[in-house]
Design a protein around this nucleic acid. Sequence first.
DNA 1: ATTTTTCTACGATTTATTTCGTAGGAAGAT
DNA 2: ATCTTCCTACGAAATAAATCGTAGAAAAAT
Lengths: 134, 134
Amino acid sequence: MKSKKNKATKGEMELLEVLWKLGSSTVRQVHDILNEQTQGKEKSYTTTLKFMQNMLEKKLVSREIIDNKHLYQATISEKESLNEKISKIVENTFQGSPGNLVLQILGNHKTSTEELQKIREYLDEIDTNQQPKK
Amino acid sequence: MKSKKNKATKGEMELLEVLWKLGSSTVRQVHDILNEQTQGKEKSYTTTLKFMQNMLEKKLVSREIIDNKHLYQATISEKESLNEKISKIVENTFQGSPGNLVLQILGNHKTSTEELQKIREYLDEIDTNQQPKK
DNA sequence: ATTTTTCTACGATTTATTTCGTAGGAAGAT
DNA sequence: ATCTTCCTACGAAATAAATCGTAGAAAAAT
């Protein structure tokens, strides 16, 4: 009866990102990646472990035991999470217009000719699929 | 000599968003908007004030006194902030390819025909400006 | 010129998040 | 089988973020 928010904190997001890269993995694997990409102060193994446990509790990850090892994986996909983020940006900053966000991206982030071409093709595709009202 | 991180917290981000909407404004104005768009538990005025003061300290906002009133405004623009956010997404999730992010957006967020048309026009424009190699 | 209202500064409290130490169990090596 | 090593669970400490109360100054109202 209590569907809590269970939103990931900033720190938990970092763990999720590692899980998205690695897929199903052990605490050890996640911890190693995390400390590898962190310059400076190492964090202790139990810190990462605790994060995983908290996130399990919050249902941000699921866990299965395979071959006597605890394997964790994200319960939300990278795309889902991204789409939520994008929706929020579109609402907040572009009055609900994804197209304007796209224009903003194209205008401010160098995009190769090939990429632009792919976008064009995508637009054409939509076009032909949408116009078949003869 | 010390260029601290001074990254905004989630709560501070909310204030920034209000400042972006309102432009230069008083604590009172920001506080009213904030509590207006919040359902449930009102926060006290001094909470908002404290946020502003902290953010001033962190250089997230600047302050000027006009007509005996403290006016605050964001030191980073909404677009700048957005571009940083986008860059991070592009790096993290799209291997540095903004085009793929665009495709992801177009594929998952309903976009009106007019918007699509504007994107097409934008692409064409780039094209003509880019091909004038003879 | 009092009184009332509104504001800022500041410190303290509360709550959330992050970090780690310790204890005990299982797996692997000697 | 004993000794290491690596693991989990758990609680507690440390740090960060958010919230609020009080005091006194300034402005507005009476």
